[in-house]
Amino acid sequence: MFSPKKKKTYTPKEALPKIAAYCAYQERTQNEVRAKLLDYGLELDDAEEIIIRLTQEKLLDEERYAQSFVRGKYGLKRWGRRKIQQGLKAKGISDFCIRKGLQEIDPDQYYENLLHLLEKKNKTEGERNPMARRQKIQYFLQSKGYELDIIQDAWKELGL
């Protein structure tokens, strides 16, 4: 019979270097770190103290996390502002940090990303009816997080 593996619990002193390494590996949110610490078997008060210490030591910085998240999502995945904002809100990031993170977006590069997605989707969209085709492409771009006014500007620029 299979028996579940007993999880090791850590004292706050043992958990600190482990969680510091976890934070050093890549940017983390306070919620991610809190969940990991509770998973280590720590009490909430101990977890909060460790989070404060990590923040003071600059190992945990939600503003930096938001900036990194924005660069990755808009640069690599070509997400729009709205989808990025929703992603950060879902991670429990404050509105202040979200605004700081969104400042990482270069407006020219953002528009280039939109044009690229529009051209690519226009080539692959199988719909023949021009109105339905336009609507499908527009829904796709909105699902990527782009704002309707910018999408319409891109349509006009490409003459589609």
Rank of each mutant, 00 (worst) to 15 (best):
C23F: 09
L88F: 14
Q30A: 08
G41M: 03
K121D: 11
L60S: 03
T29K: 01
K91Q: 13
Q67K: 14
Q30K: 15
D61L: 11
R53Y: 02
L141E: 07
E119G: 14
L38I: 00
T9K: 07
Q109T: 09
M1A: 12
G75A: 07
F96C: 08
K144A: 14
L42V: 00
D106E: 09
I98T: 12
T11H: 02
Y74M: 11
F2K: 14
G101W: 13
G80H: 11
N113T: 00
L148C: 01
P130K: 07
G80Y: 04
K91N: 02
E127K: 12
F140H: 06
K5M: 07
L118S: 03
K13H: 00
E157P: 08
E49C: 10
E49V: 08
D153Y: 05
K13T: 14
K120L: 07
A21P: 10
Y40K: 08
G80C: 14
E63H: 10
A90Q: 13
L60F: 11
T29M: 00
L38M: 03
K156C: 02
A154T: 08
L115T: 07
P17V: 04
E112D: 09
Y146K: 05
K5L: 15
V33N: 08
I51V: 08
I50H: 03
I150Q: 11
I93G: 12
S94M: 02
Y110C: 12
Y110K: 00
L16R: 01
M131Y: 12
D108L: 08
I137R: 00
C23I: 02
A15E: 03
E104W: 05
G159S: 13
I84K: 04
Y25T: 12
R82T: 15
L102C: 11
I84D: 01
T11M: 01
K89E: 15
L54S: 06
L37Q: 00
N113F: 04
K91C: 10
I50M: 04
R34Q: 09
I151W: 11
Q142L: 14
R28A: 04
R64P: 05
A47E: 05
G41L: 06
G87S: 05
E32R: 02
D46Q: 11
I151L: 04
D106W: 13
